[in-house]
Amino acid sequence: MLRKHSSTRPALRDRLVAGATLRAPPAAPITVAQEIFIADVSGALWHEGTRTLVVSDLHLEKASSFAKRGIFLPPYDTAMTLARLAQVALRFQPARIIALGDSFHDREGAGRLSPEDRASLHQLQKGREWIWVAGNHDPDAPQDVGGLYCDFYELGGVILRHEPTGAPAELAGHLHPVARVTAPAGSVRRRCFISDDQRCILPAFGALAGGLNILDAAYDGLLQAPVLHVLGRNRVYSVPVTRCVPD
């Protein structure tokens, strides 16, 4: 049971910093095609230059999608995901929020939003630009949920699209990266950003969105010498791929 004292320090520092400035806890800077982004501990990506917040794979209404098949997952995932997003938005005060695809778990997802959840979504969109990028789960524009809809989005020379292609200057989601990091003492599995100096794949932001290990073949050829930015409890840890194992 290793519990080095050092690990509890950042937590305390986080609280102090967060309390003082309402700013993100220690987060990892990621440079993609010379643009600087901040990988936030929430799993969102922040671009200070354009005051843009990017989140991927919200998978809203995933639980109700399973319920259709008789698998009654708790119907609170949409509310939880939106509440988490609202917290991040409060910290960063973004001018623009981009949902990087698979925002709804299925095509009918937007139609199943409860009135309460619909209202929180409207609240989130108030006073800022909102972009829905198309995903494989939601290839068509969602109805009656505000915002703009596009297949991809360009931000300071970087292309934002749902599915990563491996092209340079690209932000994507889709794969739900998670890393299983090992130490002699054991291993831990967490959501993560995976990036090189030209690309970044964002973790899934949705409360019920599972993950795919970054060592899976699906990632092959998408990045060159990537680094992981793993979401800890209170901060982001940058970890080499060599410390990771398959599931």
Binding site: M1, A185, V188, V230, Y237
Partner: peptide
């Protein structure tokens, strides 16, 4: 190790 020390592992890996 159980639950508690999980972030410790991440910090350790970040050190590498």
């Amino acid at each position: 190790v159980y639950g508690e020390a999980q972030d410790e592992i991440l910090a350790d890996a970040a050190q590498t």
